[in-house]
Structures are given as C-alpha cells and as structure tokens.
Simulated scan of single mutants.
Amino acid sequence: MSLAILVAEDSIITQDLLKLLLTQRGHDVDTVEDGARALNALQDRHYDIALMDFHLPTMDGLRVVSTYKSLSADKAAQTHFIGITADVSGFMAHPDNWETFDLVIAKPIDIANLCTVVENFEHYMAWRSHTSAKPGEANPTPVMLAEDVVPQTQETPDTPPDEGIALRREKRMKIDRGTTQLLLENGEVYPCRVLDLSLGGAALAIEERPAIGEQVRVGRTAGRVVRHTSEGIAVEFGK
C-alpha cells in the first residue's frame, strides 16, 4: 500500500536518503527542511506518516506537532507522528512530551528498521505495546533504538523467538533499495543500483569505476568514492 509521508529534516543527506528509499518502495514522499514549512505542509495535505526531526530551524519538531494538533485535531488524528532525535534522554525527561509523538526513533537511524516500521506502523505499535506493557506504570512514548529488533508483519506477540529472528532476517535480505544516478565531477551521469544504504554512505552496483577519492553525487547527495568492489563502488557521504 502506498503511503503519503512527510519527512521534516534539516539534513539534506538524511532527506535525500529517506526520500530515495521510501519513494522507490512506492510511497509518496514530501521533504521540508524547517519547522515552519513542516507545519504548512501538514495543513496543506493529508499524510499517513510524518517523520519529524526534533531540532528543526524556525520551529522545533515538538512545537510543530503540538501546534498542528491544537489547530487541526481531527485531521491530526489521522496521521502517525514519528519523532527523530539524538537526545532521547532529554525527550523522556519531560512526560508532557510523551503524547506529542506516537513513536520516537533514536539516532543513528537504522534505515531498514525505519522502513519496516513506517510500512507496518500499526502492527509494530501493537507489538511494542504487548511486549513492553507494565501494569500500573505510566505509558511513555515508545523509543526505537538503532540496535532494536523490529518484528515483521508475519510476527505476532506470541511468535517464537527463533521464528521471529528468521522472519526479520528474511525481510532485511529482501529489501530493494532501487536505482538512482551517479553524477561525476565532469558532469557525466551513470545509472546505478543501490546495494546498501545508510546515513554514512552507499554501496552501488555500477559498470563505471570513478577513481578512489573522486567527488560524486548519488542523486542529490554529495560524497566521495572510497572503495572499488566486485559489483561497483562504495561512496562515503559528506564533503
């Protein structure tokens, strides 16, 4: 099922990677780089999922979501809000924040886990609620860490551990990161297939082998070639 997804993130690298991966998985993705634009985007159209960085220019992610919910409560109730932050402890220290987001994802982000959660959000939240429920205690916003094990749609809270691990391994192996373009310094453009992708870099299947150290762009994301492989090249993002 195709989802309408808003990515509010001031890092161009993170924006591009999330848009590349989610778009190539069939979703309709909009990106914005600051809080004011995020609030405008939420008011302009419906999104199934909103991925919101906490530290945005002009208006932080917490304020964006809380303002939107106060202005358009009925419409906001139809969107799942996922916060992204490197300061999980700071967020959890303020219980008033717990109702702002449905889920908080800690940086560094595991791209495969993020896609699984976005595409199976209600299943994931039901699984989290079942496995972490503690009667009599407050129910803070669930936090997903990079090392967390994420269940797949075939899993239920009663799935045996060994079977669940097998399902997760199978799902990760089948992730199709799609195709994009590699732009060289001389302006030449080559199609390539993304073999692996993270916020730090990418492994690409490509016939052309630019020199190690050459500055390139994978889509819009700048980087440099750091290694030749049997299938192509490895690119490290950032100047």
Rank of each mutant, 00 (worst) to 15 (best):
G223S: 01
H228F: 12
S230N: 15
M173E: 12
I5D: 02
A166D: 15
A203S: 14
R177N: 08
P57H: 06
V104C: 04
H27N: 14
R172T: 10
P160F: 10
V65C: 01
C115H: 07
D176P: 00
M59K: 07
A126G: 10
A138L: 10
P191R: 04
R224Q: 08
G223C: 00
T100Y: 03
E147G: 07
A38I: 00
P142Y: 03
E163Q: 14
E99W: 06
A205C: 11
L22V: 08
V7M: 02
A76I: 01
F54N: 05
L114F: 12
N120A: 10
H55F: 10
Q43H: 03
G219E: 08
D176A: 08
S129Y: 12
M1E: 11
T159R: 03
R45D: 11
Q181E: 07
G238K: 06
I111W: 03
T153N: 05
Y124M: 12
E188N: 15
A8H: 01
R193N: 08
R172C: 13
D162P: 01
A203I: 04
H228C: 12
E155N: 10
Q24H: 12
L167T: 05
I105T: 05
D148S: 11
P135E: 15
P142W: 02
D176M: 03
R168E: 04
T85H: 00
A106M: 01
L51N: 07
T116E: 15
I233Y: 02
S89K: 13
L17F: 04
D28C: 14
R209Q: 15
K174H: 09
P160R: 09
D148M: 13
E122H: 15
D30R: 07
T58F: 04
A211N: 05
L182Y: 01
N139K: 10
D34M: 11
G164V: 03
K69S: 04
R224H: 14
H27F: 06
A41I: 01
D196M: 09
F54T: 03
T159A: 06
A86L: 02
A8D: 04
V225W: 05
A73Q: 13
V104K: 01
D148N: 08
M173S: 12
D34E: 15
D102Q: 06
T58Q: 14
G200V: 09
T67A: 05
E99G: 11
D34K: 07
V150I: 15
R63C: 04
A202E: 01
I82G: 06
V216D: 09
S132T: 15
A41H: 00
E147N: 12
